[in-house]
Amino acid sequence: MTEFGGPEALHVVEVPEVHAGPGEVRVAVRAATVNPTDVGVRSGLYARMAGTPPELPAVPGMDVSGVVDEVGPGTDGRLAVGDRVMAIVLPSGGHGAYREQVALPAASVVPAPAGVDDAAASTLPMNGLTARLALDEMTLDRGHVVAVTGAAGSFGGYLVELAKADGLTVVADASDADVELVRTLGADVVVPRGDGFAAAVREQFPDGVDGLADGALLGAAALPAVRDGGVVVTVRGYRGEDAEQELARGLRMVPVFVRDYAQNTPALERLREQAEAGEVTLRVADVVPAADAAEAHRRMEAGGVRGRLVLDLTR
């Protein structure tokens, strides 16, 4: 973007070539995933929240797959020119995933899962790491019950699958159209999505669940699903609305930010292994040329897309 705004703000621009600095590798990008967080970059929301002057042109995008084409000094030797990789990107100004090349900390880059194409590989890093971080922050034990809102989405879907792999019991929400999908992902109990979520969970688990991952941003409406003393993990910085009530019930409110795991190489490697083992499902809704990024944003914001829209940077 050369200015912030709606999807129409996205267009092809030339940006300076980058090179891998110390501890970095450069990736020739083949695919970049379109995520809801990209809207915050495109609209200028994150720049306003940070209180920083606009840094333009700005390039959105937090997920890439591609090929390492340059290795900087001081890396750990894991990666070499020619390796097929996936990576998480923390966008800033002209540094984002929607570009033909990007220089990244080597710690944010791991080999792409074997047998997976570029589009599918690009869908895993950001949402997968966010789900992994959420579960790690919950510190639940095997056999505990976790509730998931937004289970048909990418973050929620990965969280359902990773929670099952961790030995948790999962209750998840779904619309009528998504019930079978959410069951296929591994949810033990599926309840209707929406404002009745908490009551539906309590019908199945009268004492409340041990933890909640609120991917659908239900906020206060979802909190009654959680037992007193339980943990609630939120995205996009939500910290609760009624601190007195939350404190009285002993709820632990934990906003998670994927930047905290952006250089967690072991977590990213584990996601790759789980993708290869079939423990997580990489869902691609459609692949479109990068020049059609504006249309991809319109489709995503219209809703109803299951899986991720992916930009093809090779055409």
Score class of each variant (00 low, 15 high):
258 V>H: 01
34 V>Y: 01
74 G>A: 15
99 R>P: 00
100 E>Q: 15
129 L>D: 05
241 E>M: 10
52 T>P: 04
238 Y>T: 02
244 E>F: 08
254 V>Q: 06
259 R>M: 12
187 A>Q: 02
88 I>A: 08
266 P>Y: 01
213 A>M: 13
1 M>Q: 10
49 M>R: 14
217 L>P: 12
55 E>F: 13
245 Q>A: 14
137 E>Y: 07
148 V>P: 03
74 G>S: 13
234 T>M: 07
269 E>M: 00
184 T>W: 13
247 L>R: 12
57 P>T: 11
13 V>C: 07
177 A>C: 09
74 G>Y: 12
283 R>E: 11
165 A>Y: 05
290 A>E: 10
250 G>R: 02
314 T>N: 12
238 Y>W: 09
264 N>I: 11
111 P>A: 10
214 D>M: 08
47 A>Y: 01
110 V>C: 02
245 Q>R: 15
258 V>T: 11
33 T>G: 15
290 A>P: 08
66 G>W: 09
91 P>E: 01
278 G>Q: 09
19 H>S: 13
35 N>S: 13
312 D>Y: 05
229 G>C: 09
26 R>F: 05
86 M>C: 14
91 P>R: 07
241 E>P: 11
314 T>I: 05
180 E>C: 12
188 D>S: 05
138 M>V: 07
285 A>H: 08
255 P>E: 05
287 V>T: 15
35 N>K: 04
313 L>G: 08
306 R>P: 07
56 L>F: 05
36 P>A: 12
213 A>V: 15
167 G>I: 07
249 R>L: 08
88 I>P: 06
58 A>Q: 01
250 G>E: 03
15 V>R: 13
310 V>D: 00
63 D>L: 04
181 L>H: 08
103 A>K: 04
79 L>A: 03
143 G>R: 05
152 A>C: 06
253 M>E: 01
173 D>G: 12
29 V>T: 13
229 G>S: 03
269 E>I: 05
91 P>F: 00
106 A>H: 08
285 A>Y: 03
145 V>A: 01
78 R>W: 14
286 D>N: 09
150 G>L: 06
